[in-house]
Write a protein that binds this DNA or RNA. Sequence first.
DNA 1: CACGGATCCTGATGGC
DNA 2: TGCCATCAGGATCCGT
Length: 271
Amino acid sequence: MPELPEVEVTRLSFAGRIAGASVLSVTMGKALRWPLGCEPSMLKGQKVLGVRRRGKYLLLDMSGGLLLIHLGMSGSISFGPDLPPAGKHDHFDMVTTSGTLRLHDPRRFGAVVFAPGEDDVSAQKLLGRLGVEPLSGDFDPAAFHASLKLKKTPIKQVLLGGEIVVGVGNIYASETLFLAGIRPTTRANKLSRLRSLALHGAIQKVLAQAVQKGGSTLKDFSNANGESGYFQLEAMVYDRAGQPCRVCGNAVKSLRQGQRSTFYCTVCQKP
DNA sequence: CACGGATCCTGATGGC
DNA sequence: TGCCATCAGGATCCGT
């Protein structure tokens, strides 16, 4: 479920409650994507100073370093004083004086990594190449256009790559391109200043809106309730192959780009 | 060095 | 407790 909005909403849901807590113990389940990078006992006694987000990473500032958490494809966080016993897919439990922080991740593409500091190589290996934060003041239209000029890859894959702008995942890539009227196959360097400006605005708008709505993920809603409600309101093209475009009525098309599904409207989105 | 593809892992789903 | 193929919201690494 986690693209930038879901990660941000996750962060907001526990950052205030965990801040100031001290770690009592840490338990690891099955291996995640990467090793923790230290003995779990090393976290013991450390204080959680705060929780930030960078791209799709949660960054826990600890008194003795930085704890990076990534939710991968299927990860989710829970935090509270009375969590049930760890289940089959709970792979990281950090018990603190304020409650237990738990990573649940059936597919184990997620990760928890401890680094002595943010500038340390182990942290920079994950954070070092990340692009600009789309909801920050650093996301500048002119700079965005200049970055796109250097990439001849299809724009959809450039968005997913995260080297220019972070946080846009597979769902929001299709959605933002629809809103901007840009065909996902269009080469990034072919986008005019005006069209990259439209994309810049679409990214800000879609992501901000999703955060505001509580990161209710499109997919979850479609799963939980079949056809009803939020999903229909929210998704313009994602997962709607063959269904009529909500703007023009033409059938939504799908294609594969880099092993990922892309959805678009041939009428509303120009090459 | 920029790009495309393979790859990690488990679960859900649909066709047969 | 049917089996098998396909697909799923991410991101790194490895060829070419």
